[in-house]
Design a protein around this nucleic acid. Structure first.
Lengths: 218, 218, 218, 218
DNA sequence: TATGAATGAGCCTTCATTCAT
DNA sequence: AATGAATGAAGGCTCATTCAT
């Protein structure tokens, strides 16, 4: 029965899509299997049938969301091989912001990640190894280029953190930012402005640190 | 009887202390009144009696945690009136990090705030106005001094955000950082190193931005 | 301390008054000691202090309400000794209706009695002996006069029941009557009309029954 | 296995049956879902699953009880089309009394209705329109025939009320009647005697009223 | 005498999960 | 393969009552 097969994958997929939205909105605990199944037009037992239990289901949703986000906003953003470190940093920051502030399906990704920080589940381990570390390694190579040879590993790590921090901030603190500065918007133009500021601010910081290290060494 | 001393403590106070810990660990939804009362050696009905319901209780806990954190680590950190903008920035960053990364009672504050970001409750509004905005205003005055007259309001806002972002990062992304770099520690010395990096990185960023603006103007 | 004594009786009295209203509105179970004490501006523990527990408190309230009602609408309604049986029936019916349909303080009485029917408490026993039976005996003497010598005890009892039934109906079924016939009012004029109808209908019934018995006997 | 037969019965049905009994005995507030489910050998969550919440459950029970009572004692009681108004009144009164005083399943009906009077719930509205009004209309047509053309609408209404009142009285005031006259019984023979009295008393009342109206008109 | 604080039992409801089909 | 029915474990909250002062 091929149609059955189609229906099956459909249900699974509908569940993932519905769950992404609901988990992102409500969090792991507050999201209920009943609501997810209702939105997915599936039976209450469907989740347990397809994914075992709520926790494994959630892990699956998390991975799916991450894949969606990376697919839509790859970190290179079609950069040429010959791009300078500054250009690569600019691209990295922009793609990061877009991924995190997108309002479409990949938005789950940001929300879900934020929730993982506040209350990590077993799913975080896999996510870190499969998605976050590779991404961070990319940034560290950029930062290494910008800091120069005098920089230590700790310098690179700390500076990379400073950059990532600025990108995450606008998403992670959104509720507070909205209250402090209601006119802050997140449309593409605004995101470009944010990316521009973060890149410049960070380049200033990086150069300053590089200079300090050079001075120390000499 | 030393235990008598414990019992003498106000039930209300014991509830606040226990709740700070539990809400921070589990979040509003997952935390149960039963567990909080058990830890506070109080009756299940005590919360209802003293605070009305779980939501109002939570708001009270949030305010209490914030007050504790500010009391222990005031943002000025005993700075002289004649302190330079650089010194004031250093003090701001250090006190911020200490407040957020402290392992004692004020630790709730950071955790609770993080949870508010992920899933804001009605309590956030009050917190923003009473605690966060005044603190941010302090930072903005420092940043204004450092950026110089050429800076726009948006410059100040964006740069202040970049600084706050770096301070929050180590707490907000702790679960991920721990997995990426297990040897990262948060003892006083480590916190000092972090504060030092953030201050220097930010000063570099700020000077770079100030220079850009100056160049634009001329 | 005379003032203390005054205050004490005051609290007791205020509790009785508040409780009458609340018990009548909500019923024994749904009425809460807290609400009663709040309305009486008394402490939560006041009821238990003055009356022991909720049940004994309720019994006291019931008795108080009954005394209030009888005081305001005594069953004779100032009838002369020489009044005919018809006149006495009219007076009985009118005072009964007034007592039961009054909107003031004695209104509790009716409501509380109705609740006792639906869910009798221990308090009903005393009430029946002290208040209801004497009142019914009065009616039976009137009915005996109207039915004549041929009537049996059962005749008297059944006819008295028919009369009481009609008086109670308008109160007991008020929620249904209101829905069936929204324009039904209970102002003094309307109550007079009801009393008039019940008296005439009952007189018709009584004469019919009397006649039947007479015919049987002969 | 006869027990299998019992278990086979719909959980929903078992809940309705158990609830009828418990709600009738204890009232809406005092009845607990726990007890009902225990009697129905169902889980505590079954009520929520089948009926949503306690209130909707109660409404369903009320409707079910009413349907049971009407089914067992239809108001016509197999009367021929050619039956006289007197015969129809007799049938109406008898079926009413039987319905209200039955000790079996339809007994809930009476008890539940009585509770609705004392503390109406939202369920009463539907009940009045669907069950009570049609039944009352039947009685009014009988009364209209008996009162003759001279009677006004108010006459009909008042007389119908007087008849219904007498039928309800024996149920509504049962706790008081039992205390006043312990030997009152409610076996079929006793019910027949009550029906007989009420019918005769009411016929007397109706004829009297009719005569009065005729006299007024002429 | 009178009160505010505190208690513990119990209720309705919700939810993830399982079971029979 | 997939579902509707059913389960049992909590959770938040309410309430009458008690206790220390």
């Amino acid at each position: 029965m091929p149609s059955a097969t189609v229906d099956t994958t459909d249900t699974r997929q509908r569940l993932l899509d519905a769950a992404g939205k609901v988990f992102a909105e409500k969090g792991f605990r507050s999201a209920t299997i009943r609501e997810i199944c209702k939105r997915a037009k599936a039976n209450v037992a469907a989740v347990n049938y397809h994914f075992g239990d709520k926790e494994r289901f959630y892990a699956e949703v998390l991975g799916y969301a991450h894949r969606c986000a990376l697919e839509k906003y790859p970190p290179h953003l079609g950069l040429a091989e010959t791009a300078t470190a500054e250009e690569r940093l600019t691209a990295f920051v922009r793609s990061f912001l877009l991924r995190v502030l997108d309002n479409g399906r990949p938005a789950w990704h940001g929300k879900l990640m934020l929730r993982e920080m506040a209350e990590p589940t077993a799913a975080l381990d896999r996510l870190v190894e499969e998605s976050i570390r590779p991404n961070l390694d990319l940034l560290r190579s950029i930062v290494t280029d910008l800091l120069g040879d005098a920089a230590t590993d700790d310098d690179v790590r700390a500076s990379a953190s400073s950059i990532v921090a600025q990108c995450l901030f606008y998403y992670q603190c959104r509720p507070v930012i909205t209250r402090l500065n209601p006119q802050q918007s997140y449309d593409p133009a605004a995101i470009d402005r944010l990316a521009d500021h973060i890149t410049r601010f960070s380049l200033g910081g990086l150069r300053h640190r590089a200079e300090e290290r050079r001075r120390e060494r000499s």
